[in-house]
Write a protein that binds this DNA or RNA. Structure first.
Lengths: 153, 153
DNA sequence: TTTAATGCAAAAGATTTGCAACATG
DNA sequence: CATGTTGCAAATCTTTTGCATTAAA
């Protein structure tokens, strides 16, 4: 198992690679590469913690005190629209509840957000890497299959 | 593989079982079982679609026109506090971004919401059940390991 | 009868939008 | 220079809270 390093040279290299990729993709898409966007990219590319908008905003404001929160929102959704970042969780709208407490897995439609449960002994019994104990105490694991559901295809 | 049926007798049985479990757990915890709560339970137990608060609210309002949105919120969080339902996605707060587009898996701390990426060839290459093609076109799959991180333990 | 839950309305947060000033290509 | 982007403030939308009234045990 390979753990993504949170610090050290590996992190910097990856951050730099992302920054390059993003700036080039932005240029290629005809969108302007502003000072604010570049600084937001810089912050985000270096951040391994899956930050929320507010976190990025606060970090960027250290170097660009006049940056506004809505610019951070717009820039993050821009990266998302360009397919350069993804969101955690199934959809960009409000929180949703799962009534199923049994061990199960999810099929998530990336278009409409539909979530269907499924069960599979083979997946439920999957062998988790030993290295996980470094991160913490494992309680349970589930597989999230992403795809396009029948209705959306 | 077993697919949870979205309709038919299997669904009704499971809904009924949940309803019983919830009402008994609520009684046992000393919380009052009000008309509103019962109707919210009924709606939620029958709903296989991982509904959000608004959806539950609208459905319940058909039978209980005077029910208020905040009661639905309070009831859903009550079930959550009693450990009878879970939320989708890592945390109950705002949306977060993932800068890593490479195939990877997540370790999610259920206490503080920390998310760490990890890679594992064994998990990435796990064989997905054939039955999944019934649900749609599979794009990719990831494992979400839930646990308690080092800092929270 | 006692205690907790409800509905309402207001508050608090989070996210988006309209628009004039400004910066990029 | 033309156009897209920014910052601000206001508008929306979502979720939570205080409190008097009502209902459950």
């Amino acid at each position: 198992m390979i753990l993504n390093s949170q610090d050290g040279p590996g992190r910097d290299e990856r951050a730099e690679r992302r920054l390059t990729q993003w700036t080039e993709a932005v240029k290629a898409s005809g969108v302007k590469l502003t000072h604010q966007r570049l600084e937001i990219f810089r912050e985000l590319a270096a951040n391994q913690d899956h930050p929320d908008v507010e976190t990025v905003f606060r970090a960027v404001r250290v170097r660009v005190p006049t940056v506004s929160l809505d610019t951070v929102y717009r820039t993050l959704w821009l990266l998302h629209e360009l397919g350069l970042i993804t969101t955690l969780g199934p959809r960009r709208d409000g929180i949703r509840f799962d009534v199923n407490l049994e061990r199960h897995h999810h099929f998530v439609c990336v278009r409409c957000g539909l979530v269907r449960d499924f069960e599979s002994d083979a997946l439920t019994e999957l062998p988790l890497p030993d290295g996980l104990t470094e991160l913490g105490e494992v309680l349970d694991a589930r597989v999230e299959v992403r795809g396009v559901c029948g209705a959306c295809r």
